[in-house]
Design a protein around this nucleic acid. Structure first.
Length: 245
DNA sequence: TGTCATT
């Protein structure tokens, strides 16, 4: 009696590794700006007519479990991937308001070089160290009063497990610790991320913070928008999906 | 000055 089969069934696909060759090299695509509602099969449907899809993945935000609107698709051949870029890059999928970006994915092991490079410039990263913390603490709030509109309902930046905040005008040396320091005093912070250039590993000037409670997030935004960090003035707002005309 | 996440 086999007891392995319950109500759910998992199928494993096993195959020989494909021999590496130039025609199948660099056939991996990075797609961003996808509708958050798009599932992996739907994604594959969009791309299937340009070639044979070897595999695909939709990135999911760990905190919320929702799609991040970013995906990868590996085609069988590079020419197929190029074709997909030509036809789909900049297109707006039916029912969406936002064009997608389709381009070749960066190779993850390129990161190593740049990370080593950034260690060599270790020298001057303490510029925002000290006073940041107590500046933010001046904006106290009362945590007792904030539970009635915790999540949901809004139209920007919210998700089942938090409110996503966009922070613009971070310095190149900014890191996650700075974001924790800035937003932590305002309430429950679920997650922070500094967006870095893939090649240089320098901060691209912006980042994201997810906070659990709407009122705390709103207070943080109110207080930190316009805040001077190092020699830059931050712009802080709920995350939008890009293009806000 | 300018803006949304690279498995």
């Amino acid at each position: 009696m086999s007891s392995q089969q319950n109500s759910s069934e998992i199928k494993l696909q096993v195959s020989y590794a494909r021999p590496s060759s130039d025609t199948i090299k660099d056939a991996n695509l990075y797609i961003s700006g996808l509708p958050r509602t798009l599932s992996q099969p739907e994604l594959e449907d969009m791309f299937a007519c340009y070639g044979r899809i070897i595999n695909s993945r939709v990135l999911v935000d760990q905190a919320s479990g929702l799609s991040r609107g970013v995906a990868f698709i590996r085609f069988d051949k590079r020419a197929e991937a190029e074709d997909a870029i030509k036809h789909l890059n900049g297109n707006t999928p039916p029912g969406s308001s936002e064009p997608i970006t389709v381009k070749f994915a960066a190779n993850p092991n390129q990161t190593r070089n740049s990370q080593m490079m950034s260690q060599m410039y270790h020298g001057q990263s303490r510029r925002f160290g000290g006073p940041v913390h107590h500046q933010a603490q001046r904006f106290r709030f009362s945590p007792m009063s904030v539970d009635h509109m915790s999540s949901g309902g809004g139209s920007s930046g919210n998700s089942p497990s938090g409110w996503c905040i966009f922070i613009y005008n971070l310095g190149q040396e900014a890191d996650e610790a700075v974001l924790w320091q800035l937003f932590g005093p305002f309430g429950a912070v679920v997650n922070v991320k500094v967006i870095r250039d893939f090649n240089t590993n320098k901060c691209k000037g912006f980042g994201f913070v997810t906070m659990t409670n709407y009122e705390e997030a709103a207070m943080a935004i109110h207080s930190l928008n316009g805040y001077r960090l190092g020699d830059k003035v931050l712009q802080v707002s709920f995350k939008t999906s890009k293009g806000h005309k």
